[in-house]
Amino acid sequence: MTRYIIRRILFFIPVLFIITLITFITMRTIPGGPFDFVGDKSLPPSVVANLEAKYHLDDPLWKQFVDYLWGVVRLDFGPSYRQRGRSVNDIISGTLVTSAQLGAVSLFLSILIGLPTGILAALKQNSIVDYLSTFIAVVGRSVPSIVMGPLLMWIFALQLGLFPTSGWGRPIQVVLPAVTLGAYFSAYIARLTRASLLQVVREDYIRTARAKGLTERAVIVGHALKNSLIPVVTIMGPIFAGVLTGTFVVEQIFAIPGMGKHFVQSVNNRDYPVVMATTLIFALAIAMANLLVDITYAFLDPRIRYE
């Protein structure tokens, strides 16, 4: 197992290298650079030249790439072109923690709500409980954050005054954005858990378990549930990577200083170092999450073994 994990981690290196290269080339290929314009106004070539010299954008491309890689190896992601005087390390370290906190709470919330709801719905298949939870799950899945966020804000902050409208820093400010995010994923998890559990309870080994006289509780908890979690765990990987590195919409609505907006704004601003760093971090998060998922499989299903 340990050897397997080490091998997988070593494999991150070529993957991340290729992603870095592709991102680098893509960013330089799209028209428009970081310093052509200020608002509507084009800058004189002399001013652009000074800016490009300062950030070494006048070096040959291969040199820029090599310098960048050398920086990444030393964990130095370079300066931001847009936020003058701040390094990408400053920006990421400030915002990633915030995004990860929000992501962790909402993920926890979505598992806490999603799993039991899904299990209950499956066990009481075609009952009112099942219909109700499916209905809620469909609503939760279909209402996007951009509607859910303002709705929750309107009800719980403006009308009831129970929570602050937005902001970050106090635990109470986490509630509304975490629920907005969590509602979406818990609906997803609930539906998947239900479908998966329904499939598993029809398996042969469940029949065997019942045949040997185990209680229904022991059958479900001890045998069915564990295996039914495999699809759920599979989708948890990308979700985990996604919410931990920040979500643009929810962070915008609730004015949370997270990393989500940098994915979008850095591209608009052609802030190359920030684009590169956010892409790399997201790729790393996906790779790590998938590794975790694969490791979890081994615990859930005794048939899966890694050599």
Binding site: P150, T165, S166, Q252
Partner: peptide, 16 residues
């Protein structure tokens, strides 16, 4: 000063 980027959120904060 806060740094809210969404006009909807700003309006909600103002009304609150």
């Amino acid at each position: 000063m806060v740094m809210v980027q969404e006009d909807f959120t700003e309006m909600a904060m103002y009304e609150n």
